[in-house]
């Protein structure tokens, strides 16, 4: 099932508040190569919220997670995350195109703190693999992992 072009521009509800703690930073760091000497948050840490925001979108559109492959992800920081932050992420569908049976979904997400100030923004491309696609992704396509 292809996604519908009317999705473009739609913002999905924000994620539940996520509390950044020393323990949550340490757990994420341990799973991504190890902790920084100063205990600061890994720069890909907000993927925890980005993933939740994506799930909200997929559930709303009845898309199966196993048909999603991550094509691209970029984070841009206004300030570093710190323990004590409470963040929410809001995802908007920015673009949608169909390539060889797959939906290529461009999303933007905004991560805001308890004061509503933007801490970080993210761009992500999600590839929704069509059911009839059996070929392996080629290097030229925006497919990936």
């Amino acid at each position: 099932m292809s996604l519908d072009q009317s999705l473009v521009g739609r913002a999905f509800p924000p994620t539940a508040p996520h509390h950044v703690t020393e323990a949550s930073i340490a757990a994420f760091a341990a799973a991504t190569g190890g902790a920084a000497p100063d205990g600061s948050a890994p720069p890909t840490y907000p993927i925890i919220l980005a993933f939740e925001a994506m799930q909200t979108f997929l559930d709303a559109e009845q898309v199966e997670l196993q048909r999603i492959v991550h094509g691209e992800q970029r984070f841009s920081y206004v300030r570093p995350l710190v323990a004590g932050d409470t963040l929410v992420a809001t995802l908007t569908v920015a673009s949608l195109r169909q390539i060889s049976g797959n939906d290529i979904v461009g999303t933007t997400s905004t991560f805001t703190d308890a004061d509503g100030a933007v801490v970080c923004t993210a761009l992500a491309t999600l590839v929704h693999r069509g059911p009839e696609t059996d070929e392996h992704p080629s290097d030229e396509q925006e497919e990936g992992a």
Binding site: P43, T44, V69, H70, G71, E72, Q73, R74, F75, S76, Y77, P80, L123, T125, P137, D139, E142, E143, G144, A145
Partner: peptide
Amino acid sequence: EVREIGSKFTHP
């Protein structure tokens, strides 16, 4: 301080 980080995922 990391200000920007990202990539495409071009090969599994």
